[in-house]
């Protein structure tokens, strides 16, 4: 950096911002790569059904398709909110 640069208004380096954004979007796109087209819709419908009973976050439902040998496994995980978990434990 030169002496003159020191007095100039220097814009913030943008490359690090680009890297940050790319790391996020690439990871997201990789997670859904090769998955069937209906997956997002399936996810939304499952979310709607779960929400009839438990008030979960929109991103609480995770769906993945895993390839194991010749077969595909649909993996579904739902994170329940803290209060719901306590209630379920209490009802045992």
């Amino acid at each position: 950096m030169s002496l003159l640069d020191f007095f100039r208004n220097k814009p913030q380096a943008s490359a690090s911002l680009a890297k940050e954004r790319l790391l996020i979007i690439v990871a997201q796109e990789r997670s859904t790569r090769g998955a069937p087209d209906y997956l997002p819709l399936l996810r939304n419908e499952i979310l709607a059904v779960i929400r009839k009973y438990v008030n979960v976050d929109p991103d609480a439902v995770q769906i993945n398709v895993e390839h194991e040998g010749g077969s595909e496994v649909l993996e579904l995980s739902v994170a329940l909110p803290e209060a719901a978990k306590a209630k379920m434990a209490g009802s045992d």
């Binding site: 380096a13 943008s14 490359a15 690090s16 680009a18 890297k19 790319l22």
Partner: peptide, 9 residues
């Protein structure tokens, strides 16, 4: 200058 992604990035 931090304006372009580097090789490592």
């Amino acid at each position: 200058a931090g304006e372009m992604l580097g090789v490592k990035d």
